[in-house]
Simulated assay, not measured.
Amino acid sequence: MNAAQAGVPLVEVRDLAKTFDVSAPWLNRMIERKPRQLLNAVDGVSFEIERGKTLALVGESGCGKSTVARLMVGLYGPTRGGMQFDNQDAHAAFKTPEGRTLRRRIQMIFQDPYASLNPRWIVEDIIGEPLREHGILSEGPALKQRVGELLQSVGLSPLDMPKYPHQFSGGQRQRISIARALATQPEFLVCDEPTSALDVSVQAQVLNIMKDLQREQGLTYLFISHNLAVVRHVADQVGVMYLGRLVEVADKNMLFDNPQHPYTRMLLDAIPQMKHTGRSRTPVQGEVPNPLNPPTGCTFHPRCPHANARCKAERPPLQMLRGVKVACHAVEEGRI
């Protein structure tokens, strides 16, 4: 990465939204006289990621994190908004023949290493597939050598090439997934909870490998997680999501040291800390509302101790307040 590229966003997401039609079949709706049901899984998300940096998206299950990940790699098309990758409209490019080049530069590591690897293929074929598919290398010694190098880059051995996924532990399988993602020499990796299915000790190994690879290859990461301890280890910036929207975006240290949004404070309060032994902690209050029928105004207001009439009626925009981007009327008005 040269000096001109430093500090320049590689990825720019603007007003990204995805709506799913989750209605009952047409005939059922006619008989029961029910309207169509739409689920706003992602509802106007905007952020930037600088080259060589990591943005982590955190939030409770069902907040839209994984939908954002799938939108970023083109597995879903957006309902609204879009993504610029290296000053190129990514979603427009994905639909064209040139989209193959873009897909080489953007890769994804999936959450479940047990489900994302074909159990009938040996490791050599799993990691070699992107190389063959993108025409980087065809069959032969060169392909074998490259697969061996990729395995070594994630702490495995070239001797593992003839083995099947079931012969590996969960952590080793996730390393194979990372090796496969790195095969096309991407610049941007979307990591959808890559360590959530692993034991804590194995999580640390996989995260350290990812940090080392980022340092060596200048990789840019979007890291999806619900584990704030993991996020603290890997992220440069953190975005907190709630019901499909970003409620706070801040540098990691600012977010952990001085969280602004009441939801961020509740998430951080729920983490046990040795130095705060004996201090009463505020558990995360209430349940996540039904996303098919979200609350009016600020969607967090039913669970928020600072909510007032404006919060119930008016949706707060994500804006720069106190040095961080936050969507909260209480912060804006200085009530917290």
Rank of each mutant, 00 (worst) to 15 (best):
N2A: 10
V8E: 12
D15I: 00
L16E: 14
E32T: 14
P35K: 11
R36N: 08
Q37K: 13
A41F: 10
V42L: 03
D43C: 05
G44H: 09
S46K: 06
E50N: 13
G62L: 13
C63A: 12
V68E: 07
G74T: 09
Y76V: 00
G77C: 02
T79C: 00
Q84C: 02
F85Q: 12
D86G: 03
R103E: 11
R104Q: 15
P113G: 00
L117K: 01
N118E: 08
R120V: 01
V123F: 06
L131I: 05
G135N: 08
L137D: 03
P141E: 15
G148R: 05
Q152Y: 00
Q152P: 00
V154H: 11
L156A: 12
L159E: 15
M161H: 06
S177N: 09
L182N: 07
L189R: 09
T195D: 02
S196R: 06
A197H: 02
A197V: 11
N208P: 05
Q214M: 03
R215K: 15
G218A: 10
T220C: 09
Y221R: 12
H233S: 07
V234A: 03
Q237A: 09
V238K: 06
G244A: 08
A250P: 01
M254C: 00
D257C: 05
D257M: 04
D257T: 09
Y263H: 08
Y263D: 04
H276A: 10
G278R: 13
R281C: 01
G286R: 10
V288N: 00
T296Q: 14
H301K: 07
P305D: 14
A307S: 11
K312M: 14
V324S: 06
A327W: 04
A330H: 06
